[in-house]
Design a protein around this nucleic acid. Structure first.
Length: 491
RNA sequence: GCAGACGUAGCUCAGUUGGUUAGAGCGUCGGAUUGUGGCUCCGAAGGUCGGUGGUUCGAAUCCACCCGUCUGUACCA
């Protein structure tokens, strides 16, 4: 009864996840489909590392020895602060600035990668997640922004979404600035209040018009009773903003002119409001966007594992960031681009049955009856023959002396077929091929274990040289059965 | 960050007004069955009762703080 020493507790850092085979395959599939679209638009990949010097990311070191909250930071051995990237845009700006003489502008590029945010995780919200970005650097015209929006729409459809299941919403930061000017919030002294107003507008789809009115005025109390202070605008200003954001009022300025130009391009290309739509309530990030902003929103209900409908909102977005490269080069390098939240979008797509369609069949298991070197060579040769024919296969690598465990392993691993050759079969130049799927079906009718074992359900004896051919045929039959029951299920 | 709810075995949960050695189901492992998956039966392992401190003769139970999870909200490049 000795007390155990303190065991090291295995634990995942909060906000991080281990990814399953199914998730990895689903992600790979998504990336492949999105990439195809970007390639077709003439974009090339580029990759930057996960770490950057903190100042290059646009974060500063306050008086303390800790960079801004929200980023994971460490000090290099020369005491310089480095941070894990929190998006793919700032690192791209660094890459372009650093290689500005070698890069042919306009530079059209894409990349997928993990980004990290040191903030409170929640369901569907992690501290490491994947983004898939595309950017055009060195292109000042809004035709570039328009192309980005259309490419984003194409990417959504490449992922299997239908028209009406998503929409790309487009706005222009200059338009919003004009509205803020009109209600007297122009000028540096009102910077803080302008932010509050923009944040309030951003909440339109979450809280509705009434919620936004509260946030523009006194403030709003949430369900737990916590109070959020508002922008404290007067009633006339609130009416003006709500009217504008709701689309009943317009403003005539450069931003609106840019939106009109973009709309003309969408019209010319046949991208109607069911794909790309001007929407005055889109705000996006407050820090570096300078002109058009756009985001992809899902329009269907997403239910989580508990069966609850969740507000899914935006699955990607971007905009024009004309100042980001200039920070390094001092020279104007206008750019526009967007990001797709791969991890988030995957949750929704799985839910919709648009992913994981291509099921992966587990390997054929060659069981081991005899463990001497010569026999193992024979078993492994069977496996290699199967592999040579393009069939996933493996030899049992556990303790071969417990034969029951080998089939149990095959069962739990969902192996479709097991190959068995003991000394009897070997002497006769034969082997047993067991259809584990058919066998499982038959087992439902057998309640007595002795019968179950001795009847050897769904098991056939074939000549050694018929291995590959028989397995191939069996797998094809099984695939056909699966397709048939999938169709029956869908009907 | 703020507000609230919650925290007992790998999972889902019991556990009486504070009272002996903290239980169940499922799962895991072993055996019945060392040449056949499932079913059935038998057996076993598995717990700092989230942590620390306090109140008490005595704490899973009461109190404080901390950690974590969930919900809402704030921030979000």
């Amino acid at each position: 009864m000795s007390k155990k020493p303190n065991k090291l507790k295995a634990r995942l850092p909060r906000g991080f996840v281990d990814r399953s085979a199914a998730d990895i395959r689903a992600t790979d599939e998504m990336i492949a489909r999105i990439k195809e679209v970007y390639e077709r638009y003439g974009f090339d990949p580029v990759e930057t590392p996960a770490f950057e010097y903190t100042d290059c990311l646009g974060k500063f070191l306050p008086d303390t020895d800790r960079p801004n909250a929200g980023v994971f930071s460490v000090q290099d051995d020369d005491e310089q602060w480095m941070s894990l990237r929190y998006d793919l845009t700032a690192p791209l700006a660094r890459h372009v600035a650093e290689n500005i003489n070698e890069i042919q502008l306009p530079y059209r590029t894409y990349r997928a990668g993990w980004v990290f945010r040191n903030e409170k995780p929640g369901p569907g919200r992690f501290r490491q997640f994947m983004q898939f970005d595309a950017d055009t650097v060195g292109a000042p015209g809004v035709q570039t922004d328009a192309e980005m929006c259309m490419m984003m729409a194409d990417a959504m459809e490449a992922l299997g979404l239908q028209r009406g299941q998503y929409v790309i919403r487009v706005n222009n930061r200059k338009v919003l600035d004009g509205v803020l000017d009109a209600i007297g919030l122009g000028g540096d002294e009102n910077a803080e209040r302008r932010l509050t107003v923009l944040r309030a507008i951003d909440k339109l789809d979450k809280f509705g018009t009434e919620g936004v009115r509260l946030l523009l005025g006194e403030g709003r109390k949430d369900e737990s009773g916590d109070f959020t202070k508002g922008a404290e605008l007067d009633a006339a200003a609130i009416d003006q903003i709500v009217g504008f954001v709701g689309g009943t009022a317009q403003i005539d300025n450069e931003g609106q002119a840019e939106l009109d130009q973009m709309q003309a391009i969408f019209d010319a290309c046949g991208y109607g409001a069911d794909r790309v739509k001007i929407d005055p309530s889109v705000v996006r990030g407050l820090e570096y966007y300078t002109g058009p902003v756009y985001e992809a929103e899902l329009l269907f209900d997403v239910t989580n594992e508990k069966g609850e409908v969740v507000q899914f909102g935006s699955v990607g977005g971007g905009g024009r960031y004309d100042g980001l490269v200039k920070r390094f080069t001092g020279r104007d390098v206008p750019a526009t681009g967007f990001s797709i939240g791969v991890s988030r979008l995957m949750t929704a797509l799985k839910n919709l049955g648009k992913l994981g369609q291509t099921e992966v069949v587990a390997p054929v298991l060659v069981t081991v009856m005899d463990g001497d070197a010569e026999a193992l060579g024979r078993y492994q040769k069977m496996v290699q023959d199967l592999r040579g024919a393009g069939i996933r296969a493996e030899m049992y690598q556990g303790n071969w002396k417990k034969f029951g465990n080998q089939l149990k392993y095959a069962d739990r691993r969902d192996c479709p077929i097991a190959i068995i050759q003991g000394s009897d079969e070997r002497a006769a130049g034969e082997l047993q091929i067991k259809d584990l799927i058919e066998g499982k079906r038959l087992s439902e009718e057998i309640t007595d274990n002795v019968t179950w074992r001795e009847s050897r359900p769904a098991q056939i004896t074939v000549a050694e040289n018929a291995l590959v051919e028989t397995v191939r045929k069996l797998l094809a039959d099984q695939a056909e059965d699966r397709a048939r029951s999938a169709n029956a299920g869908a009907a």
